[in-house]
Amino acid sequence: MTRALVVYCHPQEGSFAAAVRKVVVSRLRAAQSEIRVRDLYAEGFQPLLTQAEWSGYLDAPANRAPVESHVADLEWCDTLIFIYPTWWYGLPAMLKGWLDRVLLPDVAFLMPKAAGETIRPGLHHITRMGVFTTCGASWWLTRLVGAPGRRTLMRGVGFLLKPRAKKVFAATYLMDSATPEALARHLQRVAAKTDRLIGASAAPEMERAPAE
């Protein structure tokens, strides 16, 4: 059975990101997945990697103590899903802080053992990743900048997962002037991508979703 960890980051209730989250969770539930949702704003996650944490950064397993429950969720899941708004072409500080504090040595990656070695991946139990975001900028401008947020997750975090892990990404652009129809279409796309991620067959109402 799929075990999905949904890391959700948006400050406002009733935001479009909340609607995306609802769709993702409902598709996961329809596929009988086990689901854990971490709503970083709601739980008042503290995103700063402090001097004390940095000093004990390499000291596994003590390094996980300040974020123990998040590490437990990360180790539990086989499917990792991020839902967030793109700010300044990247992750909100809150979500970036979750990466900084939870993706620890001996949790998410293994530090070099000998001189000349590099960091090795540590999340080989995660076989699927979904990234769902909303951008104020246009698709064109986001691409021109090189979509740093997308790369931080799809590639930076992607490196840590099982090799050839299944990954899906969906973004909607020009958020501030999006029409209700465009937003509805995006939710259909999110549903279809979530289904594809967990290998569920499309629900009947989703089969009418327009092709991408």
Binding site: W87, G90, L99
Partner: peptide, 29 residues
């Protein structure tokens, strides 16, 4: 650079200080 990004404290400076009207304006999209 941590996890191929800025530390949260610097990313938050971008999020909160590099604002419309301060760094850029948006007129007619």
């Amino acid at each position: 650079v941590w996890n191929f990004g800025y530390p949260a404290i610097l990313k938050g400076w971008f999020d909160r200080v590099m604002l419309p009207g301060v760094v850029f304006t948006i007129a007619h999209g």
